[in-house]
Design a protein around this nucleic acid. Structure first.
Lengths: 143, 143
DNA sequence: CTTGAAATTGATAACCCGTCTCAAAAAGAA
DNA sequence: TTCTTTTTGAGACGGGTTATCAATTTCAAG
């Protein structure tokens, strides 16, 4: 069934280290989660309603938060909702956004990424991913 | 009273362009807002309770959102709360966010800022502000 | 294969932040 | 001042997430 052997291992490892148990629901949710780049708890609830009509929303939330703790997911807050991002699909695209016309330019900068790692290490963090947005005026909008 | 002449001008300009009115509350909230680097609506509510016990929380929210539209503030969603950042504050700091427990560590890094400027210049942009968030696990959640 | 302690689940109540409602008050142009 | 329009304040409301708790499941020990 599961092609997500590596991630399943990470999960089991985390469970073992925290006296948590491997359950049918956790396996089901992880399999569904890993097929997406990002998803909300509500979306997953609807997706899994077919496979397991009795799976509760609370369990989805608890499990997605568990994935965050295990380092498999990353929660991002957008307005009222929370997106759970699949860490293994990390595409590092940063953005330059023009506040005048809304133009968006993508860029990548290794030096910045290296410095980010440095900052994280200095603070005892292990980076999973990041978000960098530069807001300003593009040449046209600057006049 | 107000040392925030420039920002007050920006606000009045925005109000004028949108048939909105200049009120005692908006002036009060802007003055308080500009003294901080960032603040939540709730915090401001408590801060201003002394000066004006009848100032409503809804008014704070409405006004802070107005500041965002006027370009004086920037809303940021952290966990359950919304932080309103003071755009004019230049010692603008960034955030390390733990995806496990939600802990937030603020940091500042001049080298990163310099590289951001470089990227912007290379693309013809003039940066007004930015948002940099590093997501990962703090030492405690990594274990 | 049991047994039993400990963890998990599901349903829903509770919670919290932020927005909406609406009558009363204030702003501001005439 | 007068009148229209906008804003305010208080509380109700709403959506997303977490807490509660009895019933169920896991899993290690026997």
């Amino acid at each position: 069934m599961s092609k997500h052997v590596k991630e399943m291992g990470v999960l089991k490892d985390h469970l073992g280290k925290h006296q948590l148990k491997f359950t049918r629901q956790r396996e089901l949710i992880l399999d569904a989660f890993l097929k997406q780049e990002h998803i909300t708890a509500e979306e997953m609830y609807h997706q899994l309603a077919r496979k397991d009509p009795h799976l509760g929303l609370a369990t989805i939330y608890r499990t997605l938060n568990l994935f965050c703790e295990a380092g498999l997911a990353q929660a991002r807050h957008f307005g009222t909702q929370t997106q759970y991002d699949n860490i293994s699909h990390k595409g590092h695209h940063d953005h330059l956004i023009c506040t005048g016309c809304g133009k968006i330019v993508e860029f990548e900068n290794c030096d910045i990424e290296r410095l980010q790692e440095e900052v994280a290490t200095r603070n005892g963090f292990t980076i999973q991913t990041h978000r960098l947005e530069l807001y300003g005026l593009c040449s046209r909008c600057r006049h």
